[in-house]
Design a protein around this nucleic acid. Structure first.
Length: 277
DNA sequence: ACAGGATCCTGGGGGC
DNA sequence: TGCCCCCAGGATCCTG
């Protein structure tokens, strides 16, 4: 559920809280993560300063001196900085003790929680990370995408637009919510085949992605069900959903009822009136 | 090459 | 009110 705008919000919130601080110790929960945390990483991490905090697609990258902590929030993952003495909330899997902020003597921890454990935290050398990010497994950021490249990519597949948008190798950061919202904004049917998309339509979809994602970042992402940020704050973009989870509601453009189907294994919402196949 | 299903996992929602 | 069932979804893997 955390997609690009939610991850961007997490990174922007955490950046002033963690950059420049040193990891003093690592604490591990009892339950195993999907990609198990390796004990030897604890020693590697101790004494390392967090130099910067970045987002790439849905990935959160904490740059250390030579290595990088890589975090994916999955469905329900959360990262937050809390006072060291605060008891762990349930499903806390990792806690990194941080050196005190300047002008403060309070000990704090950066904690990773994830009830569903779809998320992961791993540790890589800068070189390994570079490979992960450029080996074709992760496509460009939607903001860096050119119409030409996007159109070419779409032209080479008979897959549905919905499936293509969810494919992180094509485009990094889009998930179920923003795929539906962008397709609605571009007036394109989610089942339309990639190879049937004209260059004009590809450009419309690219622009829609940029517009929708930018607006969502402005509104601090979306909050519904159980997703909220580490400090308890909520996003506000869910109030602007035009398609996602609007099944049965009148389309804001043509008043046709928004329809829900399953596509690429995901619930998919669109307007049959103005998103014609 | 692609669709579709299963897998992982838990909290929350709907239905009875 | 309480209980059970089912569902949501990111990434990956397997099968048809």
């Amino acid at each position: 559920m955390p997609e690009l705008p939610e991850v961007e919000t997490v990174v922007r919130t955490l950046r002033p809280q963690v950059v420049g601080r040193t990891i003093l110790a690592v604490r591990q929960g009892k339950k195993k993560l999907r990609q198990p945390w390796q004990k030897k990483w604890n020693d590697h991490l101790r004494g390392q300063r967090i130099q910067s905090l970045r987002r790439r697609g849905k990935w959160i990258l904490l740059d250390l001196a030579e290595h990088c902590l890589v975090v994916h929030l999955g469905m329900t993952g959360r990262l937050q900085v809390v006072p060291q003495e605060q008891p762990d909330e349930p499903h806390t899997h990792l806690a990194f003790l941080l050196s005190p902020q300047e002008n403060q003597d309070r000990s704090e921890e950066l904690r990773f929680r994830d009830p569903r454990r779809f998320g992961l935290v791993s540790y890589h050398t800068a070189q390994e990370l570079e490979q992960l990010l450029t080996s074709g497994k992760l496509g460009p950021e939607p903001f860096d995408l050119t119409t030409e490249a996007f159109h070419a990519k779409l032209g080479g597949t008979v897959r549905s637009l919905k499936a293509v948008l969810l494919d992180q190798r094509v485009l990094a950061g889009v998930g179920n919510i923003y795929a539906d919202e962008a397709l609605f904004a571009a007036k394109l049917h989610p089942a339309k085949r990639g190879c049937d998309v004209t260059k004009k339509e590809a450009d419309r979809l690219r622009q829609a992605l940029v517009t929708v994602l930018s607006r969502a970042i402005e509104k601090h992402g979306s909050t519904f069900l159980s997703f909220y940020y580490g400090d308890g704050s909520r996003g506000e973009y869910q109030n602007e959903f035009k398609a996602y989870q609007q099944t049965g509601q009148p389309c804001t453009r043509c008043r046709t009822a928004i329809q829900q189907i399953t596509l690429a294994g995901r619930s998919t919402h669109f307007c049959p009136g103005c998103q014609k196949e």
